[in-house]
Design a protein around this nucleic acid. Structure first.
Length: 909
RNA sequence: GGGCUAUUAGCUCAGUUGGUUAGAGCGCUUCCUUGACAUGGAAGAGGUCAGUGGUUCGAAUCCACUAUAGCCCACCA
């Protein structure tokens, strides 16, 4: 083995071997118990960020662990076509050529997007391989591939026919430059230093006033959008606002237009804001739209798609751009005395995240899914415990959202996406733009037939129909992911075997967008929820606790960490800092833990290799401790076997509970502390090296397998280097260790007593090291040590361990006594007895007296606190016996120590 | 405004149904280049568990209130 571990070489070597040999591939025909997970598909335009790295590390740990534990394990990968993100990338490229998508036309544009996907769409799946994901690449899917698209269309048609999809009015975020709707998260809100215009709306029937005061009675409205005034169809006040109660039900005159509009009352209005009176413009503001719906108000759309005024804005303003119109209109209001005053006002204004144009709220026809009927069974599935959130508290958030669910607007004015399978009769489309005749069918042919039937016109041809130009929201394909990827709507073996999936692992930010919707789709179409457990993990934040984002420039690039350290280091460090309960803060420094661990493993393996060649090691073909003679096992050997057994049980328990972090800690401790710090040191000078190394070899191989889900590459490399595996074997498919059987434990004498004894012995060794450090005895110096036990059996055990004890204590002589004599030497009381450091002529009496005094004081204080406890009758009556006994035993120990210290104090006085 | 969560060592965080003297990693101090490993080893300092009150024989843990921070949803005409 090389002196240094070459992570890059190992990782580049193993991944292709794993993939090529189909180790990640799963087939229902292999039988067994299924364990299946679908990956949250990253955007095809995406590059791997820390969030993916964390999310996929957790999944890969679970998946590799299950696979090694004998489950028929499927982790299904894929990417999301990401409508707007992908279209945007291609449009940007077009922009450089001075072209817009409209210049190419729909078909040519889509060709360009597919070409882009072919060329660059593999970036993230390549990066996922660098992470070490054990996903079944032979099943890689894309939300826009043929099968998924088929599922999407079928779902749309079925929901439509069930009356769960409808077409209706909706206010969308509209970018006048791109002329498309934007999703909420595609709108960037920025602080805007603007104005609040106060405008008078005269009450109908009131008298004309003096010059500059056109009417005596008016209501004063405050607005940030005066240019939308021609679209007003009401003014509103809060129903609890006594100032204006008398106005409700009256009508006012809309300035400059002469139109009369009602005064209504609605809770939406805040009494304290502005004048407490709001102009309602349903076609140009999302809230006003809702108010309009509640009060049956007319919506007047006064703008064109490129945010210019149309005829409905009035002849004078028609054709003006919205900002021009604002100026002109305000000037007119002022001239006619309707403008009261203008205040400065700061608010937030939405901008298109791509072109930075101010986003317009635009009323348009959109497609919706009726969510309530779908949500109800999805709520029930979690309430009944059929589907569990991990941690459980997320179910509250899920219920909160599901119980207040709104209909889902699924249409997008994009070109890249699943086309809505609605077909219009062209002639009717032209005639009645508002509400044209249409049919919804899975194919153009079916649509034609349906239209023929609907219209009674058998002479219709395909040319008479026109498909809806809109595409579906990306989530409309993602919500089918757990079953569309397994072949639905066909009946497949995959669906039979792997559906429902077992675990879904994702961050909290897409519980609503994705998880909740998958629940609804799964239950509705498959009649079974799509997963059994929903594992929600935190978000990776920077060292200051901020979300990582491009604009802040605080992102840590996982690929850079792989480059600098290794994928194993990245994975292990992420696992170690990840809590399911909260977000994690990371910086570059944190990844050194993983890197150091990698190095430690490598060096420990080198130690093994070196000794493998030694004649006395002699474990040759023996892979386990099967051939050991139990009576010959030393206590340290029994201890490491027990520690290994406990580690196996602990890993299983923790991983079953999704405690990835605790699992990482457990294996870290077992490997580093138990194996390297203690056992390897023991083995170097073990009385029976053949036995000691056979055991080392066994627990080392188990440790590698326990660790493999976290650090797949280094464990595979080391397993091969040390010959645990033959050339054509892989640790991926090795058994996940389950510890030792009861028979083995019994045969080898692996008891709790031995375990506790070795721990106590270590405590003694540590105590002596502390004494040496305190007395500044050089580590190179050999010393004499006296161990004073009060128990013959302990003395006998220690005597049996004398050789290794000498080594650990760096003592040239260890004297084990069972007397009660006090020794004028530095000493410490331990569970097994008092350990003395014999320092002829080195002891500074004064310093020693001080040390003893300090310890005495501390010990007495401690006894006092125990006495207080034991004096409490209630404690003795109520506390479990073990606790009370423990306290008593502790007290006895301390009292003995006090006696010893008191005598010592006299000796040093 | 509605909901959720957090506050434990200088920093980042564990602490599973309440129970012996609250743990880890990093950082810090001292010592050690010993034949696996200085990306290492040994020892050590450092915490009245945000505050107040309550329940209990016993509270970091359960309850209430307060303070501070954060997240999600709604909203800012």
């Amino acid at each position: 083995m090389d002196k240094r571990y070459d992570a890059k070489a190992a990782e580049a070597k193993w991944y292709p071997i794993w993939e090529k040999n189909g180790y990640f591939h799963a087939e229902p025909s292999d039988g067994g118990t299924p364990y299946s997970v679908v990956i949250p598909p990253p955007n095809v335009t995406g590059i791997l960020h820390m969030g993916h790295a964390l999310n996929q590390t957790i999944q890969d740990v679970l998946v590799r662990w299950r696979r090694m534990s004998g489950f028929n394990t499927l982790w299904l990968p894929g990417t999301d076509h990401a409508g707007i993100a992908t279209q945007s990338v291609v449009e940007k490229a077009l922009d450089k050529e001075g072209l817009r998508r409209q210049d190419l036309g729909r078909e040519k544009f889509l060709e360009r997007v597919w070409a882009w996907k072919k060329q660059y769409g593999g970036t993230i799946v390549h990066q996922q391989r660098m992470l070490g994901n054990s996903t079944d690449w032979r099943r890689e899917r894309f939300t826009f591939d043929e099968g998924c698209s088929k599922a999407v269309t079928k779902v749309f048609v079925q929901l439509f026919k069930e009356g769960l999809i409808y077409k209706g009015d909706y206010i969308v975020n509209w970018c006048p430059h791109h002329q498309t709707a934007l999703a909420n998260d595609e709108v960037e809100h920025e602080a805007n230093h603007g104005s609040l215009w106060y405008i008078k709306y005269p009450v109908v029937g009131s008298e004309k006033g003096a010059a500059g005061e056109p009417y005596k009675d008016y209501v004063m409205v405050a607005t940030t959008r005066p240019e939308t005034l021609p679209g007003d169809t009401a003014v509103a006040v809060n129903p609890k606002d006594e100032r204006y109660a008398h106005l409700v039900g009256k009508t006012v005159i809309l300035p400059l237009t002469g139109r009369e509009i009602p005064v209504i009352s609605d809770m939406y209005v805040e009494k304290e804001f502005g004048t407490g009176i709001v102009k309602i413009t349903p076609a140009h503001d999302p809230n006003d739209f809702l108010v309009g719906k509640r009060h049956n108000l007319e919506s007047i759309n006064i703008m064109t798609e490129d945010a210019h005024m149309n005829a409905l804005a009035g002849a004078k303003y028609e054709g003006m751009d919205r900002w021009e119109c604002r100026k002109a209109l305000v000037a007119d209001l002022e001239a006619e005395g309707y403008l009261d005053h203008i205040e400065e006002y700061d608010n937030q204004v939405g901008h298109c995240y791509r072109c930075h144009e101010v986003v317009e709220s635009r009323l348009s026809k959109q497609w919706f899914v009726r969510m309530k009927p779908l949500a109800e069974p999805a709520i029930a599935a979690v309430k009944s415990g059929e589907v569990k959130f991990v941690p459980e508290r997320w179910s509250k958030i899920y219920f909160n959202w599901m119980e207040n669910i709104q209909d889902w607007c699924i249409s997008r004015q994009l070109w890249w996406g699943h086309r809505i399978p609605a077909y219009y009769l062209k002639s009717d489309l032209e005639a009645t733009k508002e509400d044209p005749l249409f049919v919804v069918e899975e194919s153009a042919e079916a649509a034609l037939a349906a239209m023929k039937e609907k219209t009674g016109n058998a002479a219709l041809t395909p040319d008479d129909l026109e498909q809806d130009p809109d595409v579906l929201d990306t989530w409309f394909s993602s919500w089918l992911w757990p079953f569309s990827t397994m072949g639905w709507p066909e009946k497949t073996d995959d669906l039979d075997f792997y559906y429902p999936t077992t675990d879904l692992v994702t961050a909290q930010d897409i519980i609503f967008f994705w998880v909740a919707r998958m629940m609804m789709a799964g239950i509705h179409f498959m009649k079974k929820p799509p997963f059994k457990n929903i594992v929600i993990h935190g978000i990776v934040r920077d060292a200051q606790g901020r979300k990582m984002s491009k604009s802040l420039g605080n992102s840590l690039d996982p690929l850079k960490i792989i480059e600098e350290h290794s994928a194993d280091a990245l994975r292990f460090s992420l696992a170690l800092i990840t809590s399911l309960d909260c977000d994690s803060k990371v910086d570059m420094k944190k990844f050194e833990v993983g890197r150091n661990f990698c190095t430690k493993i490598w060096n420990a393996a080198r130690f093994m290799e070196m000794n493998q060649e030694k004649p006395w090691a002699g474990f040759g073909a023996a892979r386990g401790p099967e051939a050991l003679s139990p009576e010959a096992l030393s206590s340290d050997e029994k201890h490491i076997l027990l520690a290994c057994d406990k580690a196996c049980a602990k890993m299983k328990d923790l991983l079953e509970k999704y405690r990835i972090q605790d699992g990482a800690l457990a294996i870290y401790d077992f490997f580093w502390t138990q194996i390297c710090d203690w056992y390897v040191e023991y083995a170097k000078d073990a009385p029976d090296k053949a036995t000691a190394f056979a055991i080392l070899r066994d627990v080392f191989w188990k440790a590698l397998r326990l660790l493999h889900p976290y650090m797949p590459f280094v464990t595979e490399e080391v397993a091969h280097q040390l010959g645990f595996l033959g050339e054509n074997e892989t640790i991926l498919l090795a058994d996940y260790p389950t510890g030792y059987t009861d028979e083995e434990k019994k045969a080898w004498g692996l008891t709790d007593e031995v375990y506790d004894y070795v721990n106590a012995k270590r405590e003694m060794i540590t105590a002596l090291r502390a004494l040496r450090a305190e007395y500044k005895v050089s580590p190179a110096a050999f010393v004499k040590v006296v161990v004073q036990c009060h128990d013959d059996s302990v003395a006998a055990q220690l005597a049996a361990d004398l050789a290794s004890l000498k080594k650990a204590l760096r003592a040239e002589e260890v004297e084990i006594v069972t007397d009660d004599a006090d020794r004028a030497m530095p000493g410490t009381l331990t569970k097994l007895g008092t350990i003395y450091l014999s320092l002829e002529g080195l002891v500074d009496k004064a310093a020693e007296a001080k040390r003893v005094a300090t310890e005495l004081e501390k010990t007495r204080g401690f006894i006092k606190s125990i006495d207080a406890k034991l004096a409490n009758e209630n404690f003795v009556a109520h506390a479990p016996a073990a606790i009370v006994e423990g306290q008593k035993a502790k007290r006895a120990e301390l009292v003995a120590n006090v006696a010893r210290l008191e005598k010592l104090a006299k000796l040093f006085a």
